[in-house]
């Protein structure tokens, strides 16, 4: 480290504190209550992971509800799931992975102190995140138009008589079972909605990080905010990696 300073004058009694014996690095972001920069970095990562573990439990509850209802009302979950567009969902998965890739590159750029690269990588992360939200909006709009939002205006006719709606590859189900399609769509909106909320919060944080990166905050050895935000962004990616097959690909071939 080029900005290291070795202190030589102990100003406190040796009984209470032993003076630094090896080279001690001073960097502006190093808080005084951490002994070393590594200790500070590890404490930060540890804290961020603890937060992500609470997020695992949070999404875990939704995944568990999904698991139970999928087993109870499997016959309703299949046609409801097949209403979703695998093309849009698959494209969105690729877009989100690309966004995560640029986030990973942003962490690298901050670590090797390439300011311009960092800013560009963060902007690309944001743009792909926005593309994901836009496609998600198109899908939600589609479900709204087809009256697949659970509630009083939920329409079961597509599931009871698919042929009348021009759907030839889905088994018709009883009106009673078709009502349970609402549970699928409830979980679908709750899970993709909470995921999208996390992404919107993330995009807000990204804008703030881009402004700070442009100012040069993260290209002089201070990587923690970029690194910890990266952990959050990748966690949101992981949630989607499970949501995609569980919501879109339950059973693609009921009549094949």
């Amino acid at each position: 480290m080029d900005n290291s300073i070795v202190t030589t004058e102990p100003l406190m009694p040796r009984e209470t504190a032993v003076h630094e014996e090896h080279e001690h690095v001073f960097i502006p972001q190093h808080r005084h209550h951490f002994e070393t920069e590594e200790q500070q970095r590890e404490a930060g990562s540890f804290g961020m992971w603890l937060f992500l573990l609470t997020e695992i439990m949070f999404f875990g509850g939704l995944f568990f509800a999904y698991l139970l209802y999928r087993n109870w009302y499997y016959d309703a979950f299949v046609p409801a799931s097949n209403f979703l567009s695998v093309t849009l969902g698959g494209t969105n998965t690729a877009i989100l992975i690309t966004s995560g890739f640029f986030m990973a590159l942003a962490v690298w750029a901050a670590e090797v102190r390439k300011k311009q690269f960092l800013v560009i990588a963060l902007i690309l992360t944001t743009l792909f995140g926005l593309a994901f939200i836009s496609i998600k909006y198109v899908e939600w709009h589609d479900e709204w138009v087809h009256r697949h939002v659970p509630g009083a205006s939920f329409d079961i006719s597509e599931f009871v008589s698919p042929k009348a709606h021009g759907i030839t590859d889905q088994k018709p189900i009883s009106p009673d079972m078709a009502e349970h399609c609402q549970i699928f769509f409830f979980l679908y909106f709750a899970m993709t909605g909470m995921h999208a909320l996390h992404m919107i919060i993330g995009i807000g944080l990204l804008v703030w990080l881009i402004l700070r990166a442009q100012r040069g905050d993260f290209s002089a050895g201070y990587v923690a905010p970029i690194e910890n935000f990266g952990l959050y962004w990748h966690f949101v990616d992981i949630v989607w990696l499970f949501l995609f097959p569980l919501l879109y690909l339950i059973n693609r071939h009921p009549l094949k």
């Binding site: 003076h19 014996e21 001073f26 005084h32 002994e35 070393t36 590890e42 890739f101 690298w108 670590e111």
Partner: peptide, 28 residues
């Protein structure tokens, strides 16, 4: 004075001396 850093060896919790590893863009 308060910015002087004092080092308490008992308080160093980095027993592994883990170096900050940088994952390369090729790996990414």
């Amino acid at each position: 004075a308060h910015e002087q850093h004092y080092h308490d060896p008992a308080n160093v919790t980095n027993p592994e001396h883990s170096e900050h590893h940088i994952v390369s863009p090729v790996q990414y």
